[in-house]
Design a protein around this nucleic acid. Structure first.
Lengths: 362, 362
DNA sequence: CATTTTTGATAAAACGTTTTATCAAACCTT
DNA sequence: AAGGTTTGATAAAACGTTTTATCAAAAATG
């Protein structure tokens, strides 16, 4: 009697536990086959629209699948087909508006094509980049969009030799045939400096991070060429390499030092928006007036540049176009593996957003 | 003869093609077994440090694995073990500094534990949220960190009933026992308004998006309670609900209208940094002087608030702590499935960053 | 009507792992 | 030396799909 009660209670408890937590086991193709008295092949065919299955069986299977909320097990599909339907996006840094827009566009387009996206950042760190690539490589990802950095050549080559399509974004490896899409760094900076020259500035400084990145080199070259072409003051001391790893306050101090050292500087161009912001802080602390004491222009527009008085003139990257082209390119490679995109190299023009920071003459 | 030549050429071509593209087939556990005259079980045991295998065979297998760059096929592992070693991070928006820090912390901690991270954004859109969850759910992801929005209750419950741990971040479902970690919205806004009151402001407006989000409601309640407690002007018209979907320029106009309508407003609090930025634009266009004409304070600090003269006082979220707690919580659930975290609910205090925008008396 | 062809359905293998159960040989016990 | 135990290695099943090959029945052909 006692035993019986215990038993009942215990059953009761188990029963309750079961209904409360309600672990609905995911239904598989095999379950559907059983439920409909068919074979797993038939179910698979129906669900994938392949083979030739009669209309009534088809309906029966689809009904059962729907009402049980069947979803294929991606792992099993992946194992069988060798495709994960996931693409990897490896960028320099995951915060910031450039990445934000990028991610949004890529995510949107990928989803349309039935792909997911996983993001990773390298933080311009070679070791981290290697880890990230290794992490993604093992059949987990079908294709890549990468902002390449020096030192990752070997790893990326390995991806390609594993038949994984790769598209570079925002940078590239000179001389290596991997498709890439980025802003036309050289010409857009050339035009930016041209604009400063046309605005009457003569002694234009250039602040850039001390990173060995080809896109930064091209910006510098655009600057130098425009300076030369306009007969402006040429002086290696007018180019300032700021240590990428320095603390923010250090960086602000360094830029202040640079701005005061070059006493005859009448304008300064920052090669990234991150530097532009640091520059604004420096200029603010020096109590210099923009644009009267100093004209200011930055590469890569930023929300702050619109708002910060008197508005900071900038070179706005065609972020949407870059992202869209990159994902389109990747999708083409993915859909038609024989389609050789290896020498598609896009350099998209930028737009100069003119604001108050570059009009000393008004 | 002719035929032979053709044949040779053709072979040659094939040979060349093969070496040039060099498709190195990924090596499998089975290949290693064959190469070392062992069984796949043995190889698996050695690679996973299980079973008992003699030192020399162990070494032989490890050597072969290493020199062939063996990496397990995640799909196969996933299929067999039912774990993908990937966690999903679903947030409101993928750009912005809050997400940036968040992502970085979570990525870092996840990687330490051998997990990858996939990101998705809902953009506060229910349909998008549903899609995103469905996309991630099918065995592709082991656990979730989600910023929940109304309308997703059912989908999220389904995840949980599928035994996938879920941790909420930045918001929660009132009355539902799902672990969450977020800033203490009520008290931090209360203290913020208290600070404004202590600074001498009497007529404090409150601008908030017209989104039905619990965290926003709590901020509003904090505002109302502090107003009442300090005996400040209470007036429903001092609370302005800004349409979330309005264009930026429209929003700026709307805030301008609000600020001029309330002629006796001496300070305004923005309930998100996104609104704070719009507010600054409005104030700028109205040529109001901060803090003389109007005290300004915003929830959620932003780079711009530090820089924008005279510096905007703000409520800084403990982003790092939130992210760290969330990922820790998720990892605990993942590591010990029986560990019930369902009523761990963290509300972390915020920090008030005092800047020039709230000191009309100086 | 005998044959070929088409249709509709299925069995079985494969993808690369992990893990349980099994087993022979070598090592201890008394 | 007979029994028991430990050690080292493996076979085989399973995870949930996709796809090839197969096959009986039905339909079309001559």
């Amino acid at each position: 009697m006692f035993n019986f009660l215990l038993n009942t209670l215990s059953n009761c408890y188990i029963f309750k536990k079961c209904t409360v937590t309600m672990i609905k086991k995911k239904i598989s193709i095999k379950d559907i086959a059983k439920l409909t008295n068919t074979s797993i092949t038939t179910v698979s065919f129906v669900l994938n629209g392949k083979g030739r299955i009669s209309a009534d069986i088809r309906k029966k299977i689809l009904d059962v699948a729907l009402e049980n909320g069947y979803e294929p097990n991606r792992m099993a599909v992946g194992l069988r087909t060798g495709e994960s339907k996931v693409i990897g996006l490896i960028v320099e840094t995951i915060s910031g508006p450039f990445f934000g827009t990028m991610a949004k566009v890529i995510e949107y387009e990928a989803e349309k094509a039935g792909y997911g996206v996983v993001y990773c950042s390298t933080d311009n760190n070679i070791q981290k980049g290697k880890n990230v690539i290794k992490m993604l490589s093992n059949q987990l990802v079908d294709g890549y969009i990468i902002t390449p950095i020096k030192g990752l050549e070997k790893e990326i080559q390995k991806l390609i030799s594993n038949e994984k399509p790769v598209v570079f974004i925002d940078s590239y490896f000179p001389g290596i045939d991997i498709p890439h899409v980025l802003v036309d760094n050289y010409n857009s900076v050339y035009q930016a400096i041209q604009f400063l020259a046309d605005s009457g500035y003569k002694n234009i400084g250039f602040v850039t991070p001390d990173l060995d990145l080809v896109q930064l080199q091209e910006r510098l070259m655009g600057y130098q060429a425009a300076i030369k072409a306009n007969g402006l003051t040429e002086d290696p001391d007018m180019v300032f390499n700021l240590s990428y790893n320095s603390e923010r306050t250090e960086a602000v101090e360094a830029v202040k030092e640079f701005l005061t050292r070059q006493i005859n500087l009448d304008a300064v161009f920052f090669s990234t928006n991150y530097l532009g912001i640091i520059g604004l802080k420096s200029i603010n602390e020096l109590k210099l007036n923009i644009p009267v004491d100093l004209g200011v222009m930055s590469f890569d527009d930023h929300e702050l540049f619109e708002l910060y008085p008197p508005g900071i003139t900038s070179v706005k990257q065609p972020t949407y176009e870059i992202a869209k082209s990159a994902i389109d390119l990747l999708m083409s490679s993915l859909n038609d593996r024989s389609f050789d995109v290896s020498n598609i190299k896009l350099q998209i023009p930028a737009e100069i957003i003119k604001r108050g920071s570059t009009s000393s003459l008004t």
